[in-house]
Nucleic acid binder design. Structure first.
Lengths: 164, 164
DNA sequence: TATTGTTATACTCTATAACTATA
DNA sequence: TATAGTTATAGAGTATAACAATA
């Protein structure tokens, strides 16, 4: 359990990390904004999937996903095949051109990060990745989760919450 | 020095942290979007300052800063006084209403983070803060900076922006 | 009736460029 | 001429709501 000052500082850092994201966005290939890059990356990492699954991985509304997907599909980077098991669904799959684009993406981001993080150790980068992943997990699928009331759960609590 | 796989994973996590930021954005007070919250937070933390200084801290273009500042000024949360030393400049300062708003902001974000990060230790939160801060430093003021990380030591002499 | 996906609309954030007023 | 700040405009990302097709 952390203190209020830490929470405020974390909130500030979360806000500030936007600058890093914007910097990364500036080196993206033409016609491939961040939203498209995210689609390609997730398809490359998790393989073929349906729109709903992609929306879940992107952690954005399906309408947003639909838009991004339409963008990359229009450029021939992915294919949308009808799902034989459910005709409402569409299966998304990277095309060879999409794989190339993904490769180019990887090249650019790797190059930028290698430059900016040249004095970071392997372990430090690993720690940041691990903590950011956990942060994401802790927030979970809260896209539609109403402000949860103070958790009544007490399992595995090693410390009592400070105050309330 | 980290490997390509790590860089790709870090890029992915940076993209994914947007979901957390959006979640935080949803609990902001009325009339106070993320941009306004950032202005209030930085003024509260660093004290009175000029537009250009705020733009630097926000890591966005001055035009963007001007917009956010106009928004919070219109709501009476900050004051813009002319700088006696340079009539082109304006000194920004939180008003009592701005302090109240800042307090409300702090309350909300702290509450949300305390809920979501209830199973994080103080040390873990501290590590994440430290690594994110360092990440930001490593990227530096790269809004228009070509690959040139070495940052000359800043001497914070000149003018001190109002230390209370 | 419920679910999958698309589209229309609106809002926030951002950068570039043109503009003003000072320096 | 150069700098501090404002405003207009354009582009990307997102959410909500209305809609179509299928389950």
């Amino acid at each position: 359990m952390a203190g209020q000052a830490q929470y405020e500082e974390l909130a500030r850092q979360l806000s500030a990390v936007g600058a890093v994201k914007r910097d990364m966005g500036r080196i993206l290939p033409p016609e491939c904004p961040a939203g498209s890059a995210a689609v390609l990356t997730l398809l490359g990492r998790h393989g073929d999937m349906r729109m709903s699954k992609l929306a879940e991985l992107l952690a954005v509304d399906m309408s947003v996903t639909s838009r991004h997907v339409a963008h990359v599909a229009a450029r021939g980077w992915i294919e949308r095949s009808p799902d034989p098991a459910d005709k409402r669904s569409r299966i998304l799959r990277l095309t060879p051109a999409g794989l190339e684009q993904l490769d180019e993406l990887s090249r650019r981001t790797t190059h930028l990060l290698a430059d900016r993080l040249s004095d970071w150790t392997d372990d430090e980068v690993g720690q940041l990745i691990r903590l950011m992943t956990r942060l994401r997990d802790s927030f979970g699928d809260c896209r539609s989760a109403p402000p949860r009331p103070p958790a009544p759960v007490l399992e595995e609590t090693t410390r009592t919450p400070a105050s309330t």
